[in-house]
Nucleic acid binder design. Sequence first.
DNA 1: AATGAATGAGGTTTCATTCAT
DNA 2: CATGAATGAAACCTCATTCAT
Lengths: 188, 188, 188, 188
Amino acid sequence: MARPLSDEKRAAILAAAIKIVAVEGVEAATTRIAKAAGVAEGTIFVYFSTKDALLNELYLTIKRSVADALTVDHLGGGTAVAGLKVVWTNYLRWGLDHPEERRAMAQLGVSERLTAQTRAVALGSFENVDALLQGVIGDRFGGSVAYASAVMAALAEASIQFIVANPAQFDAVASNGFDTLLRALDAA
Amino acid sequence: MARPLSDEKRAAILAAAIKIVAVEGVEAATTRIAKAAGVAEGTIFVYFSTKDALLNELYLTIKRSVADALTVDHLGGGTAVAGLKVVWTNYLRWGLDHPEERRAMAQLGVSERLTAQTRAVALGSFENVDALLQGVIGDRFGGSVAYASAVMAALAEASIQFIVANPAQFDAVASNGFDTLLRALDAA
Amino acid sequence: MARPLSDEKRAAILAAAIKIVAVEGVEAATTRIAKAAGVAEGTIFVYFSTKDALLNELYLTIKRSVADALTVDHLGGGTAVAGLKVVWTNYLRWGLDHPEERRAMAQLGVSERLTAQTRAVALGSFENVDALLQGVIGDRFGGSVAYASAVMAALAEASIQFIVANPAQFDAVASNGFDTLLRALDAA
Amino acid sequence: MARPLSDEKRAAILAAAIKIVAVEGVEAATTRIAKAAGVAEGTIFVYFSTKDALLNELYLTIKRSVADALTVDHLGGGTAVAGLKVVWTNYLRWGLDHPEERRAMAQLGVSERLTAQTRAVALGSFENVDALLQGVIGDRFGGSVAYASAVMAALAEASIQFIVANPAQFDAVASNGFDTLLRALDAA
DNA sequence: AATGAATGAGGTTTCATTCAT
DNA sequence: CATGAATGAAACCTCATTCAT
């Protein structure tokens, strides 16, 4: 029987791709990813049929990692606002802990190499967050979670950039940022 | 004297670059830009020394176009809030009227081909907008315009995306979006 | 392990480069060299990092081939003059047997693409020939081998050109040419 | 009536071409020659139909300049040996005074851009030198001037290189070099 | 499965030449 | 005549992908 595909190697390729894509963009050569992963050039194509397949998979992997980080705590219990605050704080923390993933995602997000299918699947990972947002906004904004979701993502990005420049103020910025979000959503 | 450099041709190249970069990203082939501009391959390099020079110039051109659109009206008269509302509305309108520029800017913004100098110059185009923001936030947020600026840009982006999906509701979304901004900035 | 680098392919590229450079000069297109070598364009850059690297390597290869041809016989035994005659005759024979190498060397020699390092290494291959020349000239010409070496190369080139035009007279020209050399070096 | 072609401009282009070809080879861009000549890119093609035409003309111009320099003195009077010594000394002096022409000629000489016709015409400029050589060698070397001519050119080149490295010794090297030539031609 | 040599299409840029001014 | 913008055919080199080992 042939040797089975190695999960470590696959993970190493994805991890290397995060680093390389973060700094060089999606047009970075696969050779460079292979080198960073410590595998041969051809090995990438043993685990991913094409470079595009690798990039789409990479996007999904990061998105899932974010989604997992957001909902690592039990969210069922309290109010929607309380749950959302947990999500908010977890997201800021994830962003600060994963600068390369954030930058890689920015590169992937504007790339024409992501399929519509990939984007759709990625969105699906955030259903429980959307449910919380729904609970917070009620029927404001036409009951549309999309708008609230964009606002939250945008404010979170602004907050993360601010904390990156002022790392000591995590708690204050996180707290004030959440208040800003609630005000923006008219839920303060 | 020989044929002078043609402003129209230069503009045609930049206009073509906007369209192509918007859909194909910064790695789009110069050949394709030339074809879209209706000029020969070599002509691009008569007007721009390298592809990177073209991309940097393109970024500055779009940024200047945005800055001009924001401050086309007289901003001196009323309160900072009133001035900011004009800027806000103009920005939304510009965004809706220039979808390709918006997408091209997103591509350029994450590209490592922009020089620090280019980014610095681009920022300089928005000084009067920053002054308005400063007037609105006073000494909140540590008196830092950077955070407020990021919040505004983020909310504007969310609003534009929403209006793109619901074109008829421009006025309502613009107005509510501005209220959201004021609440977010604690200036309502 | 994957397919190893092929010595034959490398040699084929160098051999093709000799032919092409001989007739088209150092500016001959790499595409043409590849085609003549029976490999793909990209393959050239697997074996040589740049075109300049190929040209420098080509120069060294030919120079080494000449040096080997000159000293193929045992030179230790007799007098310096006897040894030099062997070198002289071998050089004429090599020149006649390798017209393309001679022409390629002429092209490479005047090219600004050769590095100083390459030229220095090439000179080093002829140390034992220089030693023979030194033995022949003693302290004449200020004891400088450089001048004698240039004279010998020049006379050899003249002889080769003459023999090319009159192939049947190899022995006579070689012999008379060597006498000419000795007279020129005042060692007759 | 149209403005006539300017002899100064034509001369400036040829002079610039010498300098540029000397250091960059025959593949130097015409733009660079134009810039060095102080004329516009297109002007070169007003005076020379193609780049190859310019290079061929350049070769002939330099060759004529050498021929003129060799026979600037009256050669008719004395013996062939005395006349040849004048030619020899003039040639060394020309070579030392015109290093760029020498280098340009070396580049042009190996170039495939010279036509056979150009080479033939160039040879014709040296008929009176050949006559002197003929007088010196008599019927030795099969009465062939070609061989003697190559030997002389080769020894001159070696001498010039030596003098370039030791500029103070012009007279001694010139004199000894000529003795070497006579010995080589068995005419001492 | 893993490797990396081999491939050749395609990318940016150069350049001789043309032609509008 | 003189100019230099405009052209488009290469040129060198990179890179995703294939395939022999």
